[in-house]
């Protein structure tokens, strides 16, 4: 390991917990989507930090983590597109984006 990724990982963890808390505690669908983005990006941050500090390529680190970060970005974009579509459909149906109201699958 070249250098210490500790502070980055700490930041990533803090961001992740904030995102998770947002997902669990908020009722607005948009906010939940944003929280999910936060969690995804915290994971990206951790990946990139670790890849930068791993030994290899003359101190430039291993690029694998950064590549995975791109993949995560792409998937996050797709996920948000689908998620927003669902949110719009739900809004049209109920004139609200409160996820607690969408409980039709309950027994």
């Amino acid at each position: 390991m070249v250098g210490d990724p500790g502070p980055y990982l700490l930041l990533a963890a803090v961001l992740f917990v904030i995102g998770a808390f947002g997902v669990i505690s908020r009722r607005g669908a948009i906010t939940i989507l944003m929280s999910i983005e936060l969690m995804l990006n915290s994971a990206n941050l951790a990946l990139i930090a670790v890849s930068r500090f791993l030994p290899g390529d003359g101190g430039a680190g291993v690029p694998d983590g950064q590549v995975i970060g791109f993949l995560v970005l792409a998937i996050a974009a797709a996920e948000v597109a689908v998620g927003l579509a669902i949110v719009i459909a739900m809004f049209r149906l109920r004139e609200s984006v409160d996820v607690d109201l969408a409980r039709l699958l309950r027994w």
Partner: peptide, 17 residues
């Protein structure tokens, strides 16, 4: 077990986490 299936998405997220 069906008591866990509240239909509220946030509960599912909590259990998942």
């Amino acid at each position: 077990l069906k008591l866990f299936g509240t239909g509220i998405v946030r509960h599912y997220a909590l259990w998942f986490m």
